[in-house]
């Protein structure tokens, strides 16, 4: 696994997210119109190229999971658009309706976080993996069986035949997550949203799942949106990383660039907090205040202002900063990027 270069910018992106919004109403009662909204996702734009893996990183409650759910149509956005292109197939995800849904489902899949909850305990591995084929009426039972065996082999569950009719509880967490990968790939999708697929696994098992996903993604030409809170994991999975904070993307860029040269104060704090498996390494701490809050009717200024150690008047007086280019394909949403750079350099 070498650090992949950003994919060529020719052609159109596979997924084109524009001003995506998800505002959850806070219900006040049956007959009263809600006045408060949680701005879970608040106007994010993001392109994912064919074959590219993008990491969506942030703390819980930052809106990364909602974004993923909207991409696979488990949730309808309240604003903005998601354009999905797969060869000649071109659809606005929100507008896929009725009989078109099954066709869409064959192209976009999802891997879930919890290997203990993402499989029906009463269905066998065969039923679980072949479910997309079964509900979409693809193949005969014998053909499905053949396809499932092929996939089990592919995800490294061998001998495949011995896994076919086991129940999820007979498998370990790592094995289950391999089954989840197989299920996501059974219809040959072009785009897979992976929502923290390794966070519930032991550290020792994470790597093999990550490698499996990367390898299969490359071999089968699958793009991933990899949702995680763990930058170390994102480093090994993603070509690019987008850092989210309270419904906004605050920084986006190639993975190694973000890790080596973080610009946004939140990214800096996030990076300094990641535990390092090396006690000899002392890292400069970046202190930020308090914890993440819910974005209920947020004020217009920068979302990070309350926790930002670098907040200044410019941040108070202006609306949430737009993403501005700060290097090769590196975008940051902060008014004080240059000042912070020089301040931290002076400090160290």
């Amino acid at each position: 696994m070498t650090a992949t270069l950003p994919p060529p910018r020719t052609g159109e992106p596979l997924v084109e997210i524009r001003d995506l919004e998800m505002h959850f109403p806070i219900s006040k009662g049956l007959f009263r119109a809600p006045t408060d909204f949680v701005h879970a996702v608040d106007g994010i734009s993001l392109d994912i190229a064919p074959g590219e893996s993008v990491g969506l990183v942030g703390e819980s409650g930052c809106g990364k999971s909602s974004t993923g759910r909207m991409l696979v149509k488990l949730m309808e956005p309240t604003g903005g658009s998601i354009m999905f292109r797969d060869g000649d197939y071109q659809r606005d995800v929100a507008k896929v309706k009725g009989s078109e849904i099954k066709d869409f489902r064959a192209r976009v899949q999802m891997i879930f976080q919890d290997p203990y909850e993402s499989m029906n305990p009463r269905r066998t591995i065969f039923d679980t993996i072949s479910e997309p084929m079964a509900v979409q009426g693809v193949g005969s039972v014998a053909e499905r069986e053949e396809r499932v065996l092929e996939l089990l082999q592919l995800v490294g569950l061998t001998p495949a035949a011995s896994f076919l009719f086991r129940y999820p509880h007979e498998l370990s967490g790592g094995q289950r997550q391999r089954v989840a990968v197989a299920r996501a790939l059974v219809m040959n999708p072009t785009f897979v949203v992976a929502d923290e697929p390794t966070s519930m696994l032991d550290v020792s098992i994470r790597i093999s799942i990550m490698e499996l996903m990367t390898k299969l993604g490359r071999d089968l030409g699958v793009s991933y949106l990899y949702i995680t809170h763990d930058l170390a994991v994102a480093r090994y999975m993603c070509d690019r990383i987008a850092v989210m904070y309270l419904g906004k993307i605050v920084e986006i860029g190639p993975t190694e660039e973000i890790l080596a040269n973080p610009k946004h104060p939140y990214t800096r704090a996030l990076l300094s907090a990641v535990p390092v498996p090396d006690p000899a390494l002392k890292r400069p701490p970046v202190e930020i205040k308090g914890g993440i809050s819910a974005a209920i009717n947020p004020p217009p200024e920068c979302r990070f202002i309350q926790r930002c150690p670098f907040a200044a008047q410019v941040c108070q007086e202006n609306p949430h900063p737009p993403l501005e280019q700060q290097g090769d394909r590196h975008f940051v949403a902060c008014y004080r990027v240059d000042e912070i750079d020089s301040e931290t350099e002076a400090a160290s």
Binding site: M1, R206, I207, S208, M210, V233, R235, Y236, P277, D278
Partner: peptide
Amino acid sequence: STPSITGPRRELAP
């Protein structure tokens, strides 16, 4: 097998 964000990106051994 523990991924890290510091240092060079090592090959991980599962």
